[in-house]
């Protein structure tokens, strides 16, 4: 690179094409900022305005300002309330499962194993797939007549995705399968950063395996595990694609699916904007807590 620059004739066109800060600002920065304003900031503010009106995207009727009515209606709707509770239960089941499986796999991979690199790569494959593909793939696995799961369990034709008691857990298992590698990856990073001399000191003091795990491993990996858990919690609250593709069971309906139905099937644009803002406030709260603990973990 250096050779190329020094061999250029200073008077040549190529040499004179060096871009100034002003050109870089005009060519790269301003278009990006404009793009963000048009496609992110403007829709955000526009939908905020919609959330205070009775606007329906499917009708040409006059739009009226209704104040906080949409917010009050959304919070008084029993179906939306049930959906929020279902989402919270889904988040608890899914994140707990991901934590247990992911951290377990990380502990397994943190010891000497044959083909460790290949194994780690294979375990990370689900995370790299598209959620819609994963949803369709697991729908086939759960299929009551042709699905491999019923065949493997020998349980007969159990329709897990149409059962109101089982559908949510079936979706959660799919999410656990897909996102455990993420927790595993972060846990592995945390485990590899634990100083070896602490384990040596513990073995000299004849500390047991459980004692070493609870007094050395877990406290030192805890900050990074907490980050993984908060990050997955944030994402699990927003889950849409997997649940939408896999099941139409009302008992397993998550808040994002309800929002989609309100906005694009029932065309309740005003109330659905209000619901979207309620979800935004909730996710902002989780994000703030996440950033707070991320900074604390950095300070350590």
């Amino acid at each position: 690179m250096t050779t190329l620059i020094t061999t250029l004739d200073p008077k040549s066109r190529a040499a004179s094409r060096g871009w100034s800060d002003t050109t870089i600002r005009n060519v790269f920065v301003i278009p990006t900022v404009l793009f963000l304003i048009i496609f992110n900031v403007f829709p955000l503010l526009y939908s905020l305005a919609f959330s205070f009106t009775d606007f329906r995207a499917s009708s040409k009727a006059a739009v009226n300002f209704v104040g906080f009515k949409n917010y009050i209606d959304v919070l008084a709707d029993p179906v939306i309330w049930r959906t929020f509770s279902t989402t919270l239960w889904y988040v608890i089941v899914s994140v707990t499962g991901q934590f247990v499986v992911g951290f377990g796999l990380a502990l397994l991979l943190n010891r000497p194993l044959p083909f460790k690199g290949l194994l780690t790569t294979l375990l990370m494959l689900p995370m790299m797939l598209s959620p819609v593909v994963v949803g369709l793939f697991w729908k086939l696995i759960y299929d009551p007549s042709r699905g491999i799961l019923n065949h493997a369990l020998g349980s007969g034709p159990v329709a897990r995705l149409s059962d109101s008691n089982l559908a949510l857990y079936a979706v959660a298992i799919t999410d656990i399968w897909m996102w455990s590698p993420f927790v595993m990856l972060l846990s592995l990073a945390g485990l590899s950063a634990v100083p070896k001399h602490l384990y040596e000191a513990a073995s000299i003091d004849r500390a047991g395996k459980l004692y070493t795990f609870f007094r050395i491993t877990l406290p030192l990996v805890a900050p990074i595990l907490l980050i993984a858990v908060i990050f997955r919690t944030m994402e699990a609250f927003k889950t849409f694609d997997i649940a939408f593709v896999m099941t139409g069971q009302p008992a397993a309906e998550l808040i994002s699916s309800r929002l989609y139905k309100m906005a694009f099937q029932q065309w309740q644009t005003g109330p659905s904007s209000a619901l979207a803002y309620i979800i935004l406030i909730m996710v902002l709260c989780i994000t703030n807590i996440y950033v707070k603990y991320l900074n604390k973990a950095k300070e350590r």
């Binding site: 049930r82 929020f84 309620i278 909730m282 709260c285 703030n288 807590i289």
Partner: peptide, 27 residues
């Protein structure tokens, strides 16, 4: 932070409608 966490719990709890209705304000 406690208020934000409480707001999220109020919003998603399945029992008390009063808390659910005021959850957004708390958050």
């Amino acid at each position: 932070i406690a208020l934000m966490v409480a707001g999220i719990l109020f919003l998603c709890q399945p029992r008390i409608a009063f808390l659910h209705a005021r959850s957004v304000l708390v958050m």
